[in-house]
Design a protein around this nucleic acid. Sequence first.
DNA 1: CGGAATTTAAAGCCTCGGCTACACTTTTGT
DNA 2: ACAAAAGTGTAGCCGAGGCTTTAAATTCCG
Lengths: 152, 152
Amino acid sequence: MTEPTQTDDAGTTPATSARFSQARAAQSMAVLEDYAEMIDDLTAEMGEARITDIAARMGVTHPTATKAVARLKREGLANSRPYRGVFLTEAGAALAARVRARHRVVVDLLVAVGVPSETAELDAEGLEHHVSEVTLRAFEAFLDETRSGSAA
Amino acid sequence: MTEPTQTDDAGTTPATSARFSQARAAQSMAVLEDYAEMIDDLTAEMGEARITDIAARMGVTHPTATKAVARLKREGLANSRPYRGVFLTEAGAALAARVRARHRVVVDLLVAVGVPSETAELDAEGLEHHVSEVTLRAFEAFLDETRSGSAA
DNA sequence: CGGAATTTAAAGCCTCGGCTACACTTTTGT
DNA sequence: ACAAAAGTGTAGCCGAGGCTTTAAATTCCG
């Protein structure tokens, strides 16, 4: 946070920098969101989320996964005891659920406007973290309309 | 790059990690793209892009902008001489043009599916960097259809 | 011309997300 | 029961992108 002193004198657009700041902030949550969702998936599928599996699925090495989990713990999203699996806290599970729901909506929206499903899945992975609440609701509304409308 | 050794034994989904890797790769270009576009804007508006202005618009401090410009130069996207403005190379200008076009399409798409325009602008800043070529073309096609179709 | 203000640069530090290498548990299997 | 294998943890390194502080250069005026 702590916006740097912005004189804004070079600005035709007034709040340009705010946009970028926001995009950067969103980015910093992205990784946490992905890990949270992944841990949730693994817990559902295999009963527990082991560091090795998390790492394998995320496409990173074990230490990287460990660090990410440490950050999740620091943020109160997960907890774990040494050599035991990783578990999401209430907050973490809620986050995972929200992320998953959002992901689905984004993929559906992409498909609805004509993006091939594999591409939609691929792109959604990057896109989803930058979809605001407002946009998400707009997507949902659009999907509703489309589904009933094009049912004809 | 250099995908870590992935045994994939924890995988129900085969190529899950690839998705994340791709998303991460896209992210690494994002900042460069933003700076390139910004420099292009400033050059157009004010004749040249000065570090101070770039920094102000991006919402970062001058040293940060300097570093970013250094990276752009390293990547062959810009050049600059001390105490002189920053200028994009051919490649840089091409990138900026592509980024700008993509940004516009993304914003238009968002608006087309019902996102309020201010939100669209805001979200597009984060989203655009993760829109693949395929998706971009799908967006364009959708916009074409919509424009002619809903003209009724 | 010379000094003040502005702009740029340089150095040093932080966090984050990667990595490798190495040490230590825990599990597993004979 | 114990040794090998597998899984985890920890330390240390790197690059990227932030920041602040300090120093230098340039520009602008009086």
